[in-house]
Amino acid sequence: MIDDLVVNAALCMLMTAAAIWTVVTVRLLRAAIGLALTSALLTIVMYRFGSPLAAAFELSVCAGLISVIFVSAITLTSRLSSDRLNQRESEVLRRFWFLPLLVIIAGVILYKTSIPIEIIAFEGKTAAQDDVRSIIWNTRHLDLIGQIAILLAGAIGVVLLFKERKHG
């Protein structure tokens, strides 16, 4: 049990480190890779926390699809990216070295001020209710319909925003 806890905590530290690297790194493409790495580490933690299905989604959609979107957005917008912008970006990024320090201090403070919570396990429920598939398909139809609608909105957005405007 202790080993498990240590491994999980180590994974979380790695994930935080990956997130910090994502923010402080100068090249945009590296930031996108850092984000994918953070996502992948989160996937492992999610799997270890007993959520395999959500972990699969996180891996395929967040680490995969969103990285693809970011990389294509970066390549589409970097054609004309001037040196001046890169110059300023690196200047700004010097300030980013402050971030790891901030995170460590915040982490220590939060660790010291622990506020305990009595965990309630909702064990009175039946196994069928607990299964994620049955929850999604049997009791949360409204969310499913909402997801269909939001995907439709995304499709309209892609058609509208990614297309060059006809005039002006």
Binding site: R140, D143, G146, G157
Partner: peptide, 13 residues
């Protein structure tokens, strides 16, 4: 949770 989903539909549109 549904509140979140439907607020997001409106927001994305």
């Amino acid at each position: 949770i549904s509140l979140y989903v439907f607020i997001e539909i409106t927001a994305v549109s």
